[in-house]
Design a protein around this nucleic acid. Structure first.
Length: 570
RNA sequence: GCACCCGUAGCUCAACGGAUAGAGUAACCGUCUUCGGAACGGUUGAUGUGGGUUCGAUUCCUGCCGGGUGCACCA
């Protein structure tokens, strides 16, 4: 459709001896303005020094005679826009495609292999709602990429060495397992205790010089594995916290293909740094080995790669990680998703990688998102003022269960449903806005299921499902043979879905999908309220059911891309 | 101080340089003898501020004000 319109416009420009310019063909914001619009007349008018309305009028006259297939009406409006309204049959026919399994997908990245790294929680530290945010965004970007035909490799990079681990281990040493926990088997509960130990260690590290020295020495012991007691606590704590994370991934619906650990990246990173120290990429400064990134890019700065104690920093492990990723999977593109805090030092690490191996740096992409914050300020796991991932998931789940009570479900159904709905609510709250901005964590709002929310979309899809079921019970299935009035707006909205997905792909922006689905659901519910969908007129009912089926498919596929499941009932 | 990001209804967010700046929520008023009310309809309500570029600026540039993040041995 798009192509034919474009050709038609170019043809018109030729006939009028007007220059071919770069114009855009887009959807007007208002459906009443048509299905496509172009500002070509405004651009040409500017170049030619003519009045936009006059140019638009001339183009319109030519287009009118062209009879472009599928176009019902061409109009000139506003300051010189040319609007195209498509024939209804185009949208009616589209309803068939919109019921198919792969509705909304495209092949723009077919054959490409793309690795997406996200979530990245640190063993020994709490999994807080910031990690939930990275996970929701990362999973959605992974699925957006999958729906472009690419093969996606999901990776998770977890910091199992480093100062934070030393802080936690020191904390554990100060405060052995509290009573009642000696025989505890549940790793989620034990992980909470380890999290508290970390907070205590982090606090004392800043306050007390002596403690700082002890923790620094524990840090060295962890890297060297030279102390039996430390090793024992380390192995135990690592296992427990990783198990607890695994529970959360399961709840969130993420399955990683690769788990990378900082402990495994250190030695490879150190080797690279030492090798390129001799080649002059890195240099020694004040006993440490540093990379002066500002030499290559004025916006960047110097960072330490190996400390004066001889320990690798995050940056060194990062280049070890990058190298490992490409050795293992050799992706066409390697994406890392983190909060914006990490932007600058990732840029430095990437620049270092560029000096070491330029071809890899070209295939790296860092996508940052805003931070979860309280209205009052920043959350910090170091200070212990965080909302943990489990507590948010649990609280939301409890609220959902209260609402489900009236349905008289079995206990396992309640568990299952409340899981799907609460995860949907949380993911929606994260994905509804552009990923660059901070999210102000407001409990009341995060736990609200009315209006624009995950449950609203899930509910709408379920509602559509029960209409289809009712039709089926009556022996009426979707059929487009007898289009009836009342569904025109919905049909036009449905047809836009593939373009919305495509835009989310090129801009790495899940929120376009959220906005679109909310609009679609609203339009559907509004139509639903206007009259009966299933009535005595069988062929009209069958037609309406095909609209219902297309809406349901669009919602299901759209929510899937967001990482949100649609329950059978709710 | 330097770099990057942000400032839109009371609150939380949309708007690929375009037409009358859209939603949700809160407040108020309504709809329903439900094909599922986690619903639907309506009213009130907004681009921080001064310049500039443009036929046209919430969007681009710039000054100011306000907020966030980062800036060598943490990640």
């Amino acid at each position: 459709m798009f192509k034919e319109l474009e050709e038609g416009i170019k043809k018109a420009l030729g006939e009028l001896n007007l220059p071919e310019v770069a114009f855009s063909l887009e959807h007007p914001k208002e459906l009443s303005h048509g299905d496509y619009m172009t500002n070509v007349a405004l651009i040409v008018a500017k170049q030619e020094g003519k009045s936009p309305a006059e140019v638009a009028g001339n183009i319109f006259e030519v287009l009118k005679g062209q009879n472009i297939d599928g176009v019902e009406r061409v109009e000139v409006a506003g300051p010189g826009f040319i609007n195209f309204t498509l024939k209804r049959e185009v949208f009616v026919r589209n309803l068939v495609d919109a019921q198919k399994k792969d509705w909304g997908q495209n092949n723009s990245k077919k054959g490409e292999k793309i690795m997406v790294e996200y979530t990245d929680p640190n063993p020994f530290k709490p999994f807080h709602i910031g990690h939930l945010m990275t996970n929701a965004i990362g999973e959605s970007l992974a699925r957006i990429t999958e729906s472009s035909g690419a093969t996606v490799i999901r990776a998770n990079y977890q910091g199992d060495v480093g100062l934070h681990v030393a802080k936690a281990i020191w904390g554990i040493q100060q405060e052995p397992l509290p009573e009642g926990l000696e025989d505890e088997k549940n790793s989620t509960v034990l992980a909470q205790y380890i999290g508290l130990c970390y907070v205590n260690g982090a606090k004392k590290y800043d306050e007390n010089e002596e403690v700082k020295k002890v923790i620094d020495s524990i840090n060295k012991k962890i890297y060297e594995r030279s102390d039996n007691e430390v090793n024992k606590l380390y192995d135990w704590g690592r296992k427990i916290t990783l198990e607890a994370f695994e529970e959360i991934y399961k709840t969130l619906g993420t399955k990683f293909n690769h788990y990378f650990f900082e402990s495994e990246m250190a030695s490879k990173g150190i080797l690279l740094v030492r090798e390129y120290l001799e080649k002059g990429i890195f240099e020694e400064s004040e006993g440490a080995i540093v990379f002066k990134a500002e030499r290559y890019n004025l916006k960047l700065h110097t960072r330490v790669f190996i400390t004066s104690q001889g320990l690798p920093t995050y940056e060194t492990k990062e280049i070890g990680l990058t190298k490992t990723k490409f050795e293992k999977e050799n992706p066409d593109l390697s994406i890392v998703i983190t909060a914006v805090e990490q932007k600058d030092y990732m840029a430095v690490a990437t620049e270092a990688m560029r000096q070491i191996e330029p071809s890899l740096a070209e295939r790296m992409k860092h996508i940052t998102h805003g931070m979860m914050r309280f209205a009052s300020g920043k959350m910090s796991s170091r200070l212990g003022n965080v909302v943990t991932g489990e507590s948010l998931l649990n609280e939301t789940k409890i609220l959902v269960k209260q609402r489900l009570r009236i349905m008289n479900l079995t206990q396992s159904d309640t568990e299952h449903l409340s899981g799907i709905i609460s995860v949907g609510a949380i993911k929606f709250a994260i994905l509804r806005q552009a990923i660059g901005g901070d999210i102000i964590y407001n409990e009341e709002q995060a736990l609200s299921f009315e209006g624009d929310s995950g449950p609203y979309l899930q509910y709408t899809a379920v509602r559509a499902g029960s209409l289809l079921q009712k039709g089926k019970d009556l022996g009426i299935g979707p059929n487009i043979e007898n289009p009836v009035t009342g569904t025109e707006t919905l049909e036009r909205l449905i047809a836009r879905f593939p373009e919305v997905i495509a835009r989310a792909q090129t801009e790495w922006a899940p929120h376009y999908i959220v906005t679109y689905l909310s609009e679609l659901a609203q339009e559907f519910n509004s139509w639903y309220g206007q009259g009966k969908i299933i009535d005595e007129d069988v062929s009209a009912t069958a037609y309406r059911l095909s609209v219902v089926a297309a809406v349901r498919k669009t919602l299901i596929n759209g929510l899937w891309v967001l990482g949100i499941e649609v329950p059978e009932k709710m």
